[in-house]
Structure formats: structure tokens, C-alpha cells
Design a protein around this nucleic acid. Structure first.
Lengths: 212, 212, 212, 212
DNA sequence: TATGAATGAGACTTCATTCAT
DNA sequence: GATGAATGAAGTCTCATTCAT
């Protein structure tokens, strides 16, 4: 009598994934503020107090979404861009994996970037993730430079990497908004913009402002 | 002491500017949703009903901010990048003006982009403005191409322009977050990324994905 | 310089009528609470402070409307139902005038009755007007009774009169809602209901509840 | 003292009735617009959000009141005026039930009619209910006519029924305003006005306007 | 006289969050 | 473990009403 198993009692890990799925869906559809815990709970097929018990506050819930989606994305990219490939190959594989991920999880992307960029509480989280990306890209550039016996100040590398990441994010936004667009083609376009410029830099060509 | 100037009963145009100033400030500090009309009104030194009477709903107020800041920015850029300059000069002047504007109105930039990107009601407004920028950049590229007797499909040009604009926005975000950074230096960096890559494209160099 | 005549300076009486016209129109269209002083002032082509200066508070303004419309209606009825006519003639003329008035001033009727009946502040005003109508009707009945040498307690007469007035109001409501309906026909119908029953009463026929 | 009954956490159905009770009370005391959701909630001994959660918007809440009171009244009338009685008996029983109901639920009556008559959103609801009453009355008249081998156009019957209903409503208003008045006596009076006139009509007597 | 400018007050409504069962 | 019931707090918006010009 005391141990009658209830069919509803799923293990905690499963329930949490259901909730995160629902949360990502609702957050991406409505935005952080407009999303209501009611809708998330209902969409997850669970009662609100459960959501609070498992994943905490609305803000914490959003951060949990961010974490999960970020981890998935970084995993996809890292898996594709093996460190032992030549730099241009790594960049291409990384970009293709990135746009492939965005194309496959447009919801997640919307949550990750568009929502988070706006409000302070999540800026930190987002900045951390972007920093990791920038670091990876800067590492590729550095790797390529050293292979040619050249060297550039770390700051400069970072800014260039930042711009490349920004351009990628922008195209990813564009991709998320165009359901019919092909991720691979988008990746190729980005590669054209990114690699041609980067290759020049790698070869020591630089542009300097006119004395005016 | 007897001639204290009368601070109240200002004409409508003046009050509207005060309100917009306050709104830009509060929106950029708190984000659209977290910003309260109370705080905006108080910051403008006026009562809430006046804000509603002059500038309408919270949403309309935000759009009014967007419009004003956008117009200012486009004016600054258009004034700097005269159409009769050679393309690289135009791009450089335009970028310098753009980053200069962002550096000078970091509040406005935050409102313009970061907030608006998130929520649907403003996506349209923002897309329109970005479209104008993209168009200008694509025009520059096209101009340069024709000068070299070459031609590229409009779609391709637009995607490249889109990526460049995205990279600029990203650096602008970075600039807005780093109060000590110099706009002109940031513009130079962006120019390096943008122009070197673009110049390659202009010369007919392209990158193609490996057959894998 | 001090007596330059302004074309806008209409005499007070005219302005007041304009305001009342506008007020009746807006009150009847929106109802008392939903009507806004702004709309009334704008509809009257005058500024709000003027409305307050001339006709006072919103509540006072509504009562002013009530008064004017009431007076007009009573005048129309009294003018038609001359006291020296035989009772059935008076009733008929009165009813015809009443429905004619309602048909011609559907706005005014809506203000008068539908709005006022609901809220306490105006119940008094309305009751007073209805009391005058009831009194007139009861007077007719009494007159007819005496002509036949009969007499009935005043209370009874009043209740009957009250019911007749109520039935008339009801048909008037119906008339106000049916723009295509003809006032005269409606009056005839009411006369059928009213006079046939009243005539019976006048003849001493009464109905008594069964002992059950 | 240790077994103080728990007044809180009542089941939904109970709370809804409490809320409706409070709403009817407040609406009838203040009128729709002047009534505040705060007061209703407080009167129901519950917080405002519960009212919204269970019964929705203020407007929806009012309509819910209308429905409940209407249903109760129609039930009372239908239960009293059995269709197998002779017409005059049905009319009498129906009227007695009607005035009995109004006398017992003066609050409800005020909500039902006086408030609803004024504003558009409820006109439909009210019209529907009145239409059912009119239909019932017209049915009685038709029944009586056929019993005497006569027939009258449906439209005419309806207008007569409408007038009778209007007269009843008017007397009901009067009853609601006179706490000391006896419902049964009022019903008798109404019966006198209604039945005597109707009986004449049933017998084929009609009144025609003079050629003037 | 006439009005644009201004506001205090208050209404409805929605949420994130927590008890008590 | 799970949930229906419950609420404090806040936010947007509107309106009648009054100054000061």
C-alpha cells in the first residue's frame, strides 16, 4: 500500500530533460520575459511546483537552458574541428558544424543568443560562451601564423577573432530566420568572408588608415 | 531668487526630447521589459500621463527611441561616406563614423540593437534599418567590382555585406561594453578584417569547400 | 487692442447648447462611464477647461443632459395631450407624441433611460421624471373613472399607471434599437395593450388570484 | 480551539460560488463600472488573482453573474408555470414566480437588468434572456388564442408580449426599490393589467387610431 | 475668454512564487 | 513525489480635473 508504483513517477533526470525541452521551446517562442512559468509547466506536462523543485527560479531555469544548449553546440563544434587538422580545415569544419547546429536547433539558437544578449543577468553566461569560441578561433589563427613563422599580438588576434565570431553569429541569425536556407551553403559563404581576409592577415598584409 | 526660471510648462517639442532621452537611458540600462514607465517618467522629470499623452504606449515609445537613434546614426554615416569617394575610402569613412557614433552614444546603441534583436515587435523596425546598412555596403562592393570590370550576383553580395555588417555590430557591441576602448582603433581593426577579405573577393579569389 | 473681437467668442448660451449636443451624442454612444470628457470636448469643438467652466463636473454635465432632454420630451407630450380632450384621446395623443419623440431623438432617449437607470447618482433625477409621467397617466385614468362615476384608491391607480409607463418604456427601448421601425405604429400597438386593459379596469372588471 | 476548521484551501466549485455571490452583491451596489475587482475579491474573502484565475476578466465575471441569476430565475418560472395548465393559470403562476424571485433576490435582479441594459457588451446576453421570456409569454397568448379558434400574426403577438414583459420588468424595478412591498400583491396587480388587456385581445377586440 | 500642459489617483491584469494537502 | 489553491507585488494605461499662460 505504501509502495504502489505510480506510472507518473519518472526518474528525475528524464523529467528535467522534459522540462528543459519545454522551456527552450517556450523561451524561444516568447522571449524570456513574455514566457510564463505556467506555459512552460503545462508544455512539459507537469505542475508548476515541480519545475521550481527541480530547476529553481525562472532565471535559473533560463540559465540551465543556456548551459545545455551551449554544451551541445560546443560539443558539436569540438567534435568536428579536430585540433590536429590544418587551420583552414579546422575553420571550415568548425563553421560547418556551427551552422549545421544552428540549422538543426533554431529554437535553441534563438534562446541562446537573441534572448540572452539583451538582459544583464545572462550577459555573463553568454560572454563566457562566446569567449570560448573566440579563444578557439584565435588559437587557429595563432597556429597558422606560427606555422608561417610569424607572430601577432594576442589582443589583435582576439579582436579579429571576435569580428569573425560576430559575423558568424549574424549569419546564424539570418539562417535562423530563413527556414529554407541551407546551413552548408551559409557556412561556405562565411568561410569565404572569413578565410580570405584572415589569409591576408596571415601573410602579413595589413591595411592602415590614410593620414587623412 | 525672485527670478527663478520657470521649469515647468515647457513646449511639447522640448518635453518630447526630454522623454526620449530618458527613455533611451532607462531602456538601455534595464532592457525593454524590465524598464518601467514610472522610471522613465521620473527620469524625464515629468509625470507618467504626459509620456502616454505625447509618445503613446511603452512599445510605441521604444519604437520612437529606435527611430530617433537610427536616424541620427544613419545621418552620421551618410555624412561621412560621401558617394563620390573611392570605395575603400567610403568604407573607411563609413566605418569610422559608425564606430564613432557608437562610442559617443553607447546608450543609444544598446537600445538600438541589443534590446530590439530579442523581441518580435521590434524585429521589423530593426530589420529595416539593418537592411539599409546592408544595402549601402553592398552598393560599395558593387561599385568597386564594376570599377574592376567584374560582376557578382546580387544575392552573394548581400550575404557578404550581411556578414560584414554583422561583424561590425559585434565589434560595436564589444566597444559599447569597453568604455576605455577607442572607436577609431576599433574601426581600423574592422577595416582590416573587412577590406582585406573584400579585396580578395573583388579580385576574383574565392574559397571552395573541399570535396571532403 | 483690448477689445479686438474674436470670431470664436460665441455667446455663452450657444456654446452651452453645442456642448450639450456633443455630450448627449457621446454619452449615448459610449455610456456614462466609458464616455470621456476629452471626446466630448473635442466633439463640441472646444477645449476641456471650457466644458468645466460652463457645465461643471462630468456628473453635473450628465444631469444637465438629462434635464434638457427630459424637458424637451415632457414639452412634446404635454403639447400633444391637451387636458380638455377625452381620456382615450389624451392617452393616444400622448403616446403618439412620446414614441414620436423617442423615434426622433434616439440618442437622447438612450441617455435618458438606459444609462441613467443603472447608476445611483441619476436615479433620483430619473425617478422624478418618471413620477411626473406616472402622475399624468394616473390623472387620465382617474378622470375617466370619475366620468363613469367610479373611484379607485390612488395607490392602485399609480401602480397601474406605473405598469403602463413601464410597458411604454420597454417598447421605446425596442424602438430605439430598431431604426427602421415606425413610431406611430409602435404607439398604436402600445395603445392596444394599454387601453384595452385600462378600459376593462375602468368598467370595474378585475382579476383576482385563485384561492389556489 | 485546536480544531478550528480550516477556512482556506476550499475546492474550486465552492470558491466560485462565493465569488459570484460577492460579485452580484458588489455589482448591484455599485454598478458595473464603479465596481472594483478589489472590492469583489475582498468581499469574497479571497485575493484578486484567484478571481481572475477562476472567472476571468471583469466583463466575463459580470456575464457569469448574469448567467447564474438568469438560470435561477428561468428555473423558478419554468417550475411554476407548468405547460399543461390553462393559459391564465400559467400566466398567473409564472408572474407570481417571477415577482417572488425578484423579491427574494433583489440584488440579482438589479444586476441582471438595470446594469446590463446600459452597456453594449451585455446587451446581447440580456436580449437573449428577454427573448426567451417574450417567447414564453407569446406562446401562452398563442395557446389561448388557438383554444378560442382564433389566430394572430406572430409579429403582433411578440410585440404584445414584449410590452407585457416590459411592464413586468418595470414593476419588478419598482419592487426592487421598495423593500416593504409584497411580491404576491405586485403579481396580482400586474395580472390585472396584463390579463384584462390580453383577454380583450383574445376576444378579438382591438383599438384603432382615429383618423384624426 | 480660452487652452496647452500637467498630474494624482486608481483601475484592470499578470506573474513568479509558495503553502497545505 | 506531486499538485491545486492561493497571493504579494508590480506594471500598463486611462481619466477627471486643474494650473498657468
Amino acid at each position: 500500500m505504501s509502495s504502489t508504483p505510480s506510472f507518473k513517477r519518472l526518474p528525475r533526470a528524464v523529467r528535467e530533460q522534459q522540462m528543459l525541452d519545454a522551456a527552450v521551446k517556450v523561451f524561444s517562442r516568447r522571449g524570456f520575459h513574455a514566457a510564463s512559468m505556467d506555459e512552460i509547466a503545462e508544455d512539459a506536462g507537469i505542475s508548476k511546483p515541480m519545475v521550481y523543485a527541480y530547476l529553481g527560479t525562472k532565471e535559473e531555469l533560463f540559465i540551465a537552458c543556456l548551459h545545455r544548449e551551449t554544451a551541445r553546440m560546443m560539443l558539436a563544434i569540438a567534435g568536428a574541428a579536430a585540433p590536429d587538422l590544418p587551420p583552414d580545415q579546422r575553420l571550415w569544419r568548425g563553421l560547418r558544424a556551427f551552422f549545421g547546429f544552428v540549422g538543426a536547433h533554431r529554437d535553441g539558437w534563438a534562446v541562446l543568443y537573441r534572448q540572452a544578449r539583451g538582459s544583464q543577468p545572462f550577459a555573463t553566461e553568454l560572454a563566457a560562451m562566446r569567449a570560448r569560441l573566440v579563444e578557439v578561433v584565435a588559437g587557429m589563427l595563432d597556429h597558422a601564423l606560427r606555422a608561417r613563422g610569424r607572430e601577432v599580438a594576442a589582443t589583435e588576434l582576439e579582436v579579429v577573432a571576435y569580428a569573425l565570431v560576430g559575423a558568424s553569429e549574424s549569419l546564424a541569425d539570418w539562417l535562423a530566420d530563413h527556414p529554407e536556407a541551407e546551413p552548408e551553403k551559409t557556412a561556405t559563404r562565411m568561410m569565404n568572408v572569413a578565410w580570405l581576409g584572415a589569409a591576408q592577415l596571415l601573410d602579413g598584409v595589413t591595411w592602415r588608415p590614410p593620414t587623412d
